[in-house]
């Protein structure tokens, strides 16, 4: 049962992963990538990582939906009505990737993997939580900082307007002057 599920998910993941770069239409490419990543989430469920698997599904769905909008915004010809290739150096890349795969596969098959140590905990989620809030606290904090820094950095990068544009040079304007008024008046 699990083997069949693994096989199906694996095949779907690889095929839709390949299709990402074969579809003309950006919407199809994005959602093909989503399919591939959802399969990865499914494989994680098979591995017994329920929480992380579901979180992957959740995050990837939202991420891809947003990505689709960026696609439509920035890509020329997002629907693929006028087929065109936007690739470069296809041959070289194919060679590199082929070699990389062969090397990786050889490594995977030839490496003397150590025997399994210990048993999976009854509740891996609890295990993860205890670890993140305990010995791995530093990792968690670094991740938090990185996320926060990214939020700030992306906003700075993406926006053009600052508070002086919104509230005037002396920051005294009672109402922000925005192209579109918000709901709180800030």
């Amino acid at each position: 049962m699990n083997d069949v599920a693994f096989g199906l998910l694996a095949a779907l993941a690889v095929v839709s992963g390949v299709m990402v770069f074969r579809f003309d239409s950006m919407a199809r490419a994005t959602f093909s990538l989503l399919t591939s990543l959802l399969c990865v989430g499914g494989e994680m469920l098979l591995l017994g990582l329920d929480y992380l698997g579901i979180v992957t599904v959740l995050m990837m769905t939202i991420e891809m939906a947003i990505m689709a909008v960026f696609m439509v915004m920035f890509m020329m010809n997002p629907a693929g009505l006028m087929p065109m290739t936007m690739t470069h150096n296809k041959k070289g890349a194919a060679v590199i990737c082929g070699i990389a795969f062969v090397l990786l596969a050889a490594g995977v098959l030839l490496a003397p993997w150590p025997a399994r140590q210990g048993k999976p905990p009854a509740d891996p989620t609890m295990d993860l939580g205890m670890s993140l809030m305990g010995p791995q606290m530093l990792t968690m904090m670094v991740l938090g900082m990185a996320l926060f820094a990214t939020i700030v950095a992306t906003v700075v990068l993406a926006t053009r307007r600052g508070r002086y544009d919104r509230f005037g040079d002396d920051l005294r304007a009672p109402q922000a002057s925005d192209p579109v008024r918000g709901g709180v008046g800030r």
Binding site: V72, N77, P78, A79, L81
Partner: peptide, 21 residues
């Protein structure tokens, strides 16, 4: 339709599938 997105540049109003870009 929205799907008919165009090329770069303003002047380029190509028509694809009967839809203007």
């Amino acid at each position: 339709g929205h799907a008919a997105h165009g090329m770069h540049g303003d002047h380029d109003m190509g028509v694809v599938a009967g839809l203007p870009m």
